[in-house]
Design a protein around this nucleic acid. Structure first.
Lengths: 189, 189
DNA sequence: AATTCATTATACCGAACGGTACAATAACAA
DNA sequence: TTGTTATTGTACCGTTCGGTATAATGAATT
């Protein structure tokens, strides 16, 4: 593997274990078997490295996620597709999930939060959009878009955490239950 | 106010804005109008300061939380009490909520995570315990304790975030809806 | 008044932080 | 083969990091 990708992989792993601020550039280059100027040549600065990690991973993620989000009148089907896409992607990239989770919930003025907030907003907005469109068919969704979008995002993250900890096995049965759990809560309002 | 409490208040605010690792001891003492040895006299080290902040706040929290968790055969009532206790405490302590949220979702080997994990586990265990006891009356809860406990914790944190952002007003109507949303998901399984 | 002990300031420590100037090398095109 | 550009190592920069030795206070006790 070339040095650029080695750095990305090493940094992703280290960041996911001890956080963006908890890992120094020196440790990244040592573990990668290179020296600082190489890292700074490819990424400009530490933040540039983080940005590259996020951009690369989220690019793949949104490809699958936005395909899954396609709504054709069946909200349960769409949610099922979304759950599948979400869980499978992060199951394949557990280190990236841990990193993105930590960044998402880090403090508002931290570098990590600033780096990830646009991506997270895009997910939330996508959920909102789905609920807005679906509310044509489901009257009870109306006026709760924002809340539903946020709670859905939170739920997915919690499930994903259990999945990558191997407490939950992702299969049709689980996905069906999870969607059911979420939907019936909404219908009940 | 005495220096000890000044330090605690200043540190809580700064940590909640830029994270435990993002704030230096020097900045804390400068903002507090004192010098380093004073801080180290009271707290031993930086971690000791964080521990004190967590211990103080969670002490008050668990007082109210565990009173609210008392189950007497009515799971909806108990959940309603828990939601009220949870939301009201963190609405009163929004900075501490932001800090604890960031620590809870920080990386597994970070200092902040190690500092808060016992408290978070206590909350999860408390939820689990509730669902185990309640499963005597609600058969459909059986075997899902852990999952329900975790998803409840996640849901509460998401709601709380909206509350301290003043997107949600905490009143009887909201609490009723939130509990309903959560419960009907469970009943539907 | 003398003693004691908690509290605090001055001044400093070595280590780690992110980042870079500069020169050497490697790769490739003209 | 020469010129050009991308890549990389050596050695270093100033700043900030968490933490402390020492001594000076302040207040309370004897």
């Amino acid at each position: 593997m070339d040095n650029k990708n080695t750095i990305i992989n090493v940094a992703t792993k280290l960041f996911s274990q001890r956080g963006y601020e908890g890992v120094g550039v020196q440790e990244i280059v040592d573990t990668s078997g290179i020296t600082k100027p190489t890292l700074y040549h490819f990424f400009g600065n530490k933040r540039g490295l983080l940005d590259t990690i996020l951009k690369t991973n989220y690019s793949t993620f949104f490809d699958k996620f936005e395909t899954a989000s396609n709504y054709k009148g069946d909200i349960v089907l769409t949610l099922t597709q979304i759950f599948w896409a979400y869980f499978l992607f992060f199951k394949k990239n557990p280190e990236f999930f841990r990193l993105s989770l930590a960044l998402t919930y880090s403090t508002l003025q931290s570098e990590g939060y600033l780096a990830i907030t646009d991506y997270e907003q895009r997910i939330i907005k996508s959920f909102e959009q789905l609920f807005i469109i679906a509310s044509t068919n489901h009257g009870n969704l109306k006026g709760h878009h924002k809340l539903f979008a946020i709670s859905l995002s939170g739920l997915l993250n919690y499930y994903t955490l259990e999945i990558i900890n191997e407490k939950i096995v992702v299969n049709d049965d689980f996905i069906t239950k999870a969607v059911k759990h979420y939907m019936h809560g909404i219908y009940a309002l």
